[in-house]
Nucleic acid binder design. Structure first.
Lengths: 170, 170
DNA sequence: TCAGGCATGTAAGGAGTTACATGATTTA
DNA sequence: TAAATCATGTAACTCCTTACATGCCTGA
C-alpha cells in the first residue's frame, strides 16, 4: 500500500484535486496514513502520464483554479487489483516505546515526561476519532465504522494503561 | 528516532556485532521497530567513521569471525542527547485499515478474509509478547515492562474487536 | 497591508528495502 | 552433500520528507 493506491481509492469515490486529496487524508484517516504535498503532486503527475488518471482544470469563484483528477478505466482496474492483492503487514514505529525500552538510562522525571506527553497525544487523537464517530457514525459503511472502532479501542486501552502508570508509577 | 539511535541504545548495554544487533531487534522489539541488514551494516560503518563506535574483530569457535562494535564516549553522549531530545510522533501505516476504509468496493468475503487474516496476525504477535512477559517479566525494568504492556493491551483490544466482528458481522 | 487559506509544483536529500554476492561452518 | 545458520557487505532502487518557490484571493 502506497500513496498511489490511496489516491486511486479516493478518486474512485469522487474526482478531486491534489489539495483536496491532502485534506481528505487529514480528515478521514490521518491516524493510519499520511502523505505530504511533496509526494501527492508528483504522484498525480506520474499517474496521469501512465494513463491511470485524467486531469481537468476547473475555474473557481474567489479561489485559484484547481486541477481535478478522475480515474480512467485502467485506474479503476489497478485499484481493484490492489484490493485483491495480499494484505500487507502494518508498519508501526514508536519513538515512545523505544525510549521506554531504554528508560533505565534516563532519570525518572524524564520517563514520566514521556509518558504524560504520550498520554496527552493519545487523548487528543482519541477525542478526534470520537468526534468523527459521532458525526459520521450513522452514515458510513460498516467496514468504515470498524476502521474507526479499531482506532478507538486501541487508543482507549493505551490511555487507560498510561493513566494508571502516572497515578502509581512502579 | 532512526536506526542509528537504536544501535547506540543496544551498544550502550553491551558491545555487539551487526548480526547480533539484528537478532536483538527481532527478539525484543520487533513490534515497534525493525531494520534490515542493508541498513544495519552501512550504518555501523558510518558510525565508526564518524567516531561514535570502535570496531574489533573477534574470532569464534565453529563460527565465522565477527566485528564487535563498542560505544565511544562520543557515542554515549550522542545517545543521551537523543534521550533528551523532544519525543517524536509514532508512525503507523495500516494497509488493513485502508482496505476496510474502502471496503464497500470489495465483496463481503474479501473483507471477511482481511479481518480474519489480520486477527490471526495479531494473535500471533500477542502470543509472542505474552511469552516474553512470562520469560522476562520479573527481570526487566518497570519501563521495559510498561513497554510490553502497551503492546499487550493494544493487541488485546484489537483482537477482541475483530473476533466480535467475525461472529456477528454488521 | 498583512496573515491565512487556497493551489501547484520542484529540488535535494534522507532513510530505508530488496536483491545480489560471498564465504565459513554445522548438522542432518 | 545439501540445507541451515552464522556473518558481512554492496548496489540499485523506492518512497518519502523538507524546504523552497510562486502566486491568487479574502478578511481582519
Amino acid at each position: 500500500m502506497n500513496t498511489q493506491h490511496v489516491i486511486l481509492g479516493i478518486l474512485h469515490n469522487q474526482p478531486s484535486s491534489g489539495y483536496e486529496i491532502k485534506q481528505y487524508f487529514e480528515q478521514y484517516f490521518s491516524f493510519f496514513f499520511d502523505a505530504s504535498f511533496g509526494t501527492i503532486y508528483p504522484t498525480l503527475a506520474k499517474m496521469e502520464k501512465s494513463g491511470l488518471l485524467t486531469k481537468e482544470s476547473v475555474k473557481q469563484e474567489g479561489k485559484p483554479d484547481k486541477n481535478v483528477y478522475s480515474l480512467t478505466p485502467e485506474g479503476a482496474a489497478q485499484f481493484h487489483a490492489y484490493l485483491m492483492s495480499p494484505l500487507e503487514a502494518e508498519v508501526f514505529r514508536s519513538d515512545f516505546l523505544m525510549r521506554l525500552y531504554f528508560g533505565e538510562l534516563a532519570d525518572e522525571d524524564t520517563v514520566t515526561g514521556w509518558i504524560s506527553s504520550q498520554l496527552k497525544r493519545k487523548e487528543m487523537l482519541y477525542a478526534e476519532l470520537q468526534r468523527q464517530m459521532e458525526e459520521f457514525g450513522e452514515r458510513i459503511s460498516p467496514a468504515q465504522r470498524l476502521c474507526l472502532q479499531v482506532g478507538l479501542v486501541q487508543y482507549e486501552a493505551t490511555i487507560q494503561l498510561l493513566k494508571e502508570q502516572l497515578v502509581r508509577p512502579e
